[in-house]
């Protein structure tokens, strides 16, 4: 299996209507190859919609999104057939959901969930599947003794670790993270956050991190955009956004995160 690595992501004028409700409007940004970009905004600001449009879970109303390799060749994401999109999401692009039950089958084991992504990529050797799943789960600090337990018996933090193991199983080029720590207790969230930071640093994956929490984005992404009522209101280095927010809404968010 050939894995296309080192892809950048470009989103241009992405607009999404849900019926008569405008979820996001003319959202544009670039994520460089190997870069992590944060999207900050409160609930309802449209940031998750952006992510789901890129992943293809929902269809964008207008706009474009494409993956670009080092040679400058682009792959259009919105023009994919469902089959092509499924293939893309097996190998190239992974989405980690806020709610692990969206990304996992809770009835099957932790190892089985990871194995699903691997078998979809053509793995047909039981021993190799076991070793790869154990290796991935080990890296996510899931105790190997729990590998053969159904995920339904896992705590929230542990489920999120399994979801991360599954998401990176085929070394994706692009990783989309939708509020990956929001549903977790503070102490558990800190551990998962550390883990994600490790993945981003180690694998040089191109990442998009969506969160309402400035602190989460600041920890994972050097650059971020701020969304408010479906529009991008500010873009900049995360440090600068934290230190010197320009837009009144960004200022509110920063103030809120300092609590």
């Amino acid at each position: 299996m050939t894995v296309v690595r080192d892809l950048g992501l470009r989103v241009a004028n992405l607009t999404k209507w849900y019926g008569r409700v405008l979820a996001c409007e003319s959202v544009s940004f670039d994520v460089g190859r190997g870069e992590a970009l944060g999207i900050i905004g409160e609930s309802g600001s449209g940031k998750s919609t952006v992510l789901r449009c890129i992943a293809g879970d929902v269809a964008a109303s207008s706009g474009a999104a494409e993956l670009r390799d080092a040679a400058g060749d682009a792959q259009d994401l919105f023009g994919l057939t469902p089959t092509e999109r499924r293939k893309l999401r097996v190998g190239t692009l992974s989405l980690v959901y806020q709610d692990p039950s969206e990304g996992l089958d809770l009835r099957i084991t932790a190892g089985g969930n990871v194995a699903e992504r691997l078998t979809a990529a053509g793995w047909r050797n039981f021993g190799a599947l076991r070793r790869r799943a154990a290796d991935l789960l080990g890296r996510m600090d899931v105790p190997l003794g729990r590998m053969d337990d159904p995920v339904s018996t896992f705590s929230g933090g542990m489920r999120q670790r399994v979801q991360l193991a599954k998401a990176v199983a085929n070394n994706p080029s692009v990783l989309l993270l939708d509020e990956p720590t929001t549903s977790l207790d503070a102490s558990v969230a800190a551990g998962v956050l550390d883990l994600i930071r490790g993945i981003l640093e180690e694998s040089q994956v191109t990442a998009l991190v969506v969160s309402h929490d400035f602190a989460v984005v600041a920890m994972l992404a050097r650059r971020a955009i701020v969304m408010h009522e479906g529009r991008v209101v500010e873009t900049g280095l995360t440090d600068q956004l934290l230190e010197d927010p320009q837009h009144p809404y960004s200022q509110q968010l920063v103030a809120a995160s300092r609590g």
Partner: peptide
């Protein structure tokens, strides 16, 4: 239609594991 049988393989995996 897509010959997407990965979940069938997972069920065989689960059977072997359990």
């Amino acid at each position: 239609a897509e010959a997407d049988y990965s979940r069938m393989w997972v069920s065989l995996y689960e059977d072997l594991v359990r």
